[in-house]
Every structure is written in structure tokens, then in C-alpha cells.
Nucleic acid binder design. Structure first.
Lengths: 198, 198
DNA sequence: GTCTATAGTGCGATAGAC
DNA sequence: GTCTATCGCACTATAGAC
């Protein structure tokens, strides 16, 4: 008899998403998830530090993608050029085939405040990591933090649009549009509005 | 016998902050907080839906301040002008006398991931509310969401600076500096910056 | 792998305020 | 009388300790 199979975490993740989607997040216990793939509750918590975490594995890949997209930029690139590179790289993780999976996962998250909190936290960690990378490349404060936070904001808005009903454009295209929108938006402000735009 | 005194929530909040600061957040039980002001654990949970929430009451005031700062702007104000107005208004909640209290509270939050999650969530709710207000004023998407998220980003960075050791400038001044920094930062980007030749 | 503390809920009882 | 804050108890799930 097979005592354990490879990919335990992955099987737990898949089972959890299914159960959460059909029965609701709070109505699904960690023990149920574990049992549905032939494991014990104790094993579930050895793989995931808490119940929410089972939905958020894979975020490390997102962080790596963002960082990877920065390293390929030229040495004298401006902060927002680094951000643009990071966003382009991150878009690779969101091919068309993954759209429906992302939609299902997001629908679960949207229905539970605790999961929304965890999602925000992960984005926050991503922003902090990006800030570190920007500072390591010589970007000063507060520009590094502002650029990093703007990157996650643009990513978040773009992702929301990417999974919205009827949307068919690839992620990278949506990201570029959002980034351009942010630039236009901030260019128009106090003492610098449309009237002063000459 | 006085069964209850007014301001129960406030007394619980003050007691909780003290206990968290001296004994640590996780080492402090809800029952201890309640007992320290002569109440039971059950009553604590009547006032706060969960243990973390006791540190985050008062955020409603922040939301109101942001919204109030928007309503006073002229009808044809650009989105980022509305954001600027909201930030100015919010700064009133952070007078010099509150700086040390804010520092203590933040030191507790910084030491616990669960509290950081809640803080991010509250910021996220604030951003969503601001987005609604901007849309109500006729700002289109995705500009409304981007402007709202940028507002909370600038606020967050400004607040971090405001409570940093040795900082003496008033909140409103720091906010203005951060907003200007964001404008400069986003103005320089792909196809539009010093490194981006013609 | 078991054992335990704590977070958090549900319900009924009680003590005041009005 | 009504309304609401508090209490007390039983209970489950999470999560950490042993």
C-alpha cells in the first residue's frame, strides 16, 4: 500500500479549492480536506501553517516572477521602468488557460473576509519584497516604496479586470493599459491640472 | 451595584493596548483583557467580533475624514485633486499629541502578522470606499480605483514616516511631499522617461 | 500522534435603564 | 412592561505543545 504519494500539498490544495467552492470556506474543516485525500488533520497542518494558507501557495512564484522581471532591465532604468518589467514578467503566470481556475479561486476568496485579509497580506509582502529589490538597485526612499506599492496596485487592478466576465485580453495587455492610466492620472493634480497642462 | 459604565469599548481598547504592549499580543487572552476592566470574556466578544478588532476601532473615523475631504472640493476637480483633499482632511486625525500613542500601537501591530493582516484589510476597505466615492462623483474606471489605491498608498507611506524616530513634521506636510514624489515617479516611465529616448 | 489552550459561537438567564 | 448589556455555560475548530 502506498503510504504517501508525491505532491501532497498540491492534492490538498486542489481538494480544498473544490470543497470550499461547493460547501463554503467556513463550512469546510481542515479535517475534511485531509480526509478527502486520505490524510489526517495533523498532516494538513504540517503542510500548511493555517487553514487559509492552503489557498495561497504559489504566491512565492509570483514574487519570483516580479523580481525576475526587474533583473533583466538595464542598469540605468527608472523605477517605473523596473516596475513595468516586473509586471510583464508576472503576466506569464496568467495565461488564458488559467483564467477559469483564477475565477473560481477568487470567487471563494471574495466570499470570506478572512481570506481577503490573507490575500491583502500576501500583496503587502510582495510590495515589501519589491521595495527591497528597488532599494538594492539604488532607488532611494520614498520612491522605492511608492513604486513597489504602485506595482502591486496596478497588478491587482489588472488581475481583477483579467478575471472579469467577458474579458479576453491577455494579462500583459491589461497591465500596460493600467500602468498608462496611472501615469495619466497622477500627472493631473493640484497645481498641475488639465488647465495647467500646456 | 453598577452593572455597567459608559465607554466599555474604549476601556477595553485602552486595556488591550497596554496588555499587548507589555505582555505581547498572543500572550494576552481576551479573558485577561476583559477581567482587567471588570468584565467577562463573553462581553469582550460582544463588543469586538474578534480579538484583533480591539486594536482597529477608530478606523471608521479615518474613513469619514477621507470622505469629508472629498466633498469640499470643487465639482470639476481632477481625481488626484480629490485625493489630495482627502489626505489633507485625514491629517487632522494625526496631531502631534497622538504621535506617541500611534507609535506604541504600531509597534504592537508590527510584531504580529495577524495584526498586520487586519491593518492591510482595513486599508483595503478604505480604498474600496474611496473608490465608491470617486465613482459617485463621476470618475470613471479604472481611474477611480487607481486613484483610491494611490490615496491609501500615499497615506500609508506618509504615516510610516510620521511615526518614524526623530520625525517632527506635521502629517499634512509629509503627505504633500509623498504625493509630489508619487507624481514625479510615475511621470518618468517607459516611453516617457530620461532613459527612454525618442 | 495525542493532548490541551484559546478563539469564537449559541442560547438562555439576569440585571439594570427607560 | 420593553430594551439592551452583561453573564454563564456548553460547545466546536483551530493551532500549538508535548
Amino acid at each position: 500500500m502506498v503510504r504517501w504519494q508525491p505532491g501532497t500539498s498540491e492534492r490538498l490544495q486542489a481538494a480544498a479549492l473544490e470543497l470550499f467552492a461547493s460547501n463554503g470556506y467556513e463550512q469546510t474543516t481542515a479535517a475534511e480536506i485531509a480526509q478527502s485525500v486520505g490524510l489526517t488533520e495533523r498532516t494538513f497542518f504540517r503542510h500548511f501553517s493555517d487553514k487559509r494558507e492552503v489557498l495561497f501557495r504559489g504566491q512565492e512564484l509570483l514574487v519570483e516572477a516580479f523580481l525576475g522581471g526587474m533583473t533583466t532591465a538595464p542598469g540605468d532604468a527608472a523605477p517605473m521602468e523596473l516596475v513595468a518589467g516586473a509586471l510583464e514578467s508576472a503576466a506569464d503566470l496568467f495565461p488564458a488557460e488559467r483564467r477559469d481556475h483564477s475565477r473560481l479561486r477568487q470567487s471563494v476568496i471574495d466570499q470570506n473576509p478572512a481570506l481577503q485579509e490573507r490575500e491583502r497580506h500576501k500583496m503587502s509582502v510582495l510590495a515589501a519584497t519589491l521595495g527591497d529589490a528597488l532599494r538594492a538597485r539604488g532607488v532611494a526612499e520614498p520612491a522605492a516604496t511608492l513604486a513597489a506599492e504602485s506595482a502591486t496596485t496596478v497588478f491587482g487592478v489588472a488581475f481583477t479586470q483579467w478575471i472579469s466576465p467577458g474579458e479576453t485580453r491577455p494579462m500583459v495587455e491589461i497591465e500596460r493599459a493600467m500602468l498608462a492610466e496611472l501615469r495619466d492620472l497622477t500627472a493631473v493634480g493640484p497645481g498641475n491640472g488639465p488647465a495647467a497642462k500646456a
